[in-house]
Amino acid sequence: MSDKQKKKLTALQQEYQSFAKAREPGRPVTKNILRAFIVGGVICIVAQGISDFFLWNFDFTEKTVGNPTAAVMILISVILTSVGIYDHIAQWAGAGTAVPVTGFANSIASAAIEHRSEGLVLGVGGNMFKLAGSVIVFGVFAAFVVALIKTILAMLEGS
């Protein structure tokens, strides 16, 4: 908790919070990091296998094989989400399943499933990007800023 928030608490509240904190189990950080490392790595190995499969069997190059590989990973994630397995893996794996593209696909698919009962347009359409929306907004904005810096640097070099 930030200092600013803590100042607003009364002495009694502060006393209770440290009293309660001593009795609450914290997040098992080391265990979570290890699990995330293992599961994240396994997902990458699977994706590497799919990528190699496309490279050997079809007419792809190192550059073009990325798109079909991501598409297959997204498909796997969406299938696991819709049969109700992905969230159980995620509780165990944490960031390991959240960081790869599978986590992004899960956030969209789960929101779409969740709001299906409110109809296709207002339900699925309106809520699909409820969680992924902020990733897209800040992702696009960050890309814009980086591209702007790159363009300015290129112009300075050229002049």
Binding site: E24, P25, G26, R27, P28, N32, T81, S82, G84, Y86, D87, I89, A90, Q91, A93, G94, A95, T97, A98, G103, N106, S107, A109, S110, A111, I113, E114, H115, K130, L131
Partner: peptide, 17 residues
């Protein structure tokens, strides 16, 4: 869970509390 937290199938890791 839908009302108060994330979609039921969303893969977020819940803390032990």
């Amino acid at each position: 869970e839908k009302q108060f937290r994330y979609p039921t199938e969303y893969g977020s890791q819940k803390p032990p509390t």
